[in-house]
Nucleic acid binder design. Structure first.
Lengths: 136, 136
DNA sequence: CTTATTTGGTTATCATGGTAACTAAAGTCA
DNA sequence: TGACTTTAGTTACCATGATAACCAAATAAG
């Protein structure tokens, strides 16, 4: 960017901090783009991947309510709703009635969901690791 | 996130690199969120702000073609088109016919555009600097 | 127990990013 | 010069994020 020149002109904030921040945002968005492309290749998205992860990694149980997923992932209710719906249609999740609350449902991974997650993980980490090596 | 636990399980990639990357993406997205909120308060967006910056900082001239803005900012043509249209309606930019190419137009800041930019810069840097101090 | 509040989930609408496909003007080249 | 390619800008459509407003069930308060 050419934003840096402003910092001195306005006299607000430290040049270093701003440069670091801009460089960090640039790196992060590059990496996010790489990962998004990878997810798209697998007919997924960041958020769908995280939904799989968050259910899979739950220690005591193998299913969660939508609201519980919402608490774990920083995303709005409508977006999660839409994403979960799409994942149900795609056969990655199954939904069963919640025993304790008739408004709620439990969401669990299907075999396809588990398989998809397992298939993505190695290259997910590989992409990140290689990117970070390139950054150094 | 709880992704870290997978790294060892899959044996792909370095735990450190992945943790750094996830932490970087978290920080970047927090900062982006702060900045987006700031822009929204001023009826702008990241991209609109950058369009103002990129025209303002042009050394030889005070106007640019849409395609030139496109080369400087990493954004698709349709998105830039939409954004520029909106900024024209909002009175932040003016468009004049290009002398050399009858398909093209020159885009320049209006006084309102210049004022808006000047008004935003100090706090823009302040937000970034303060965020970076908090990160250390 | 009835009313009021909170919670789980959904719908509608908007903002901002992308790609594909198109028009028209400009530039290339045989 | 006429045909081909590139470039500037636009349109149509999709994906993914958000907020506001809503229903119905559960919970709290009187």
């Amino acid at each position: 960017m050419m934003i840096e020149g402003y910092v001195k002109a306005t006299g607000t904030g430290s040049t270093d901090g701003v440069e670091q921040a801009l460089s960090m945002m640039r790196s992060a968005s590059q990496l996010v783009r790489l990962l998004d492309a990878y997810f798209a290749n697998h007919n997924l998205s960041q958020l769908k991947f995280l939904v799989l992860v968050v259910i899979d990694r739950e220690p005591e149980t193998d299913s969660l309510r939508q609201s519980e997923i919402n608490q774990r992932l920083d995303v709005s209710k409508p977006v999660l709703h839409r994403t979960v719906s799409s994942m149900l249609s795609a056969g990655l999740l199954v939904r069963t009635q919640d025993n304790e609350d008739s408004r709620a449902h439990q969401l669990a991974l299907t075999d396809a969901g588990k398989t998809a997650l397992r298939a993505m993980l190695p290259d997910y980490f590989k992409i990140i690791t290689e990117f970070m090596e390139g950054e150094r």
